[in-house]
Design a binder for these strands. Sequence first.
DNA 1: CGGTATCCTTGGAGATACTG
DNA 2: CAGTATCTCCAAGGATACCG
Lengths: 142, 142
Amino acid sequence: MLDKQKKVAEILEVTGKANGVCPVQDFLAHFANKWSMLVVLNLGHLESPRFNELKGKVVGISQRMLTVTLRSLERDGLISRRLYAEVPPRVEYQLTPLGGSLLDVMMSLGDWASVNQVEIAKARKNFERRSKNRMEKISVGG
Amino acid sequence: MLDKQKKVAEILEVTGKANGVCPVQDFLAHFANKWSMLVVLNLGHLESPRFNELKGKVVGISQRMLTVTLRSLERDGLISRRLYAEVPPRVEYQLTPLGGSLLDVMMSLGDWASVNQVEIAKARKNFERRSKNRMEKISVGG
DNA sequence: CGGTATCCTTGGAGATACTG
DNA sequence: CAGTATCTCCAAGGATACCG
């Protein structure tokens, strides 16, 4: 319990210092966009998929966003890109070991989200109800 | 190893179905903003801090964004808010058990980020170098 | 097939001023 | 002290058309 607090303190310690950025914050700034983690998950599932194969799996992504996302992940060393000099060209993507390690973290995050999504939804409903009551008191005359 | 693939498959399975959203995706959509996780971390570190105390710790946050962030976390049941009817008013925030469980996940994410930030930075430098070479070939005549 | 290039929209977030 | 209320800006992301 107190170990936990201490560990949090360590993580936050960096944050205050000159130019120090919280690792969690830093992570989110880079990877917490609409598609990156979905692509990582799909690459953990498929084996060396091609561009359009991936596009088919990542439901709703546009060609542009898939390109942007893949470049960004490649840039950070999470995925590798292999271009085969054929006509028409073939490009395959796969997770690097680094990307694979991130996949583990994402899975425990996925676990947490799966387990607790009901409780969160419940909390949200409760919160709505409470604020609605306040509204009703105000708008009785409407 | 194959267990891992299978688990990823489960997480992604929801995604394809009608109105199904990937838990990871869902998580990010709600919590992956600029301040939420920083606030959660700070609440894991401090004990029942007051509004301005928190504002002092979360470096760079504005009054507005702290309010917005706290409301959102409260709405999702991750933190609780206690208002003491004093003059001037005193408000204290703390993590709920749900929020505490999220803190654990964030800490393993923080671990990953801390351990791998060097490798990521290196990968990024490498990537820049490679694209710069391409640029130089193009702009020789400039 | 696997991308770029371009234009456009939207909402997250900052700055500032005011309040119970 | 602990917030609201506005206004504003910018960059993430979508739509569409073209390219090696």
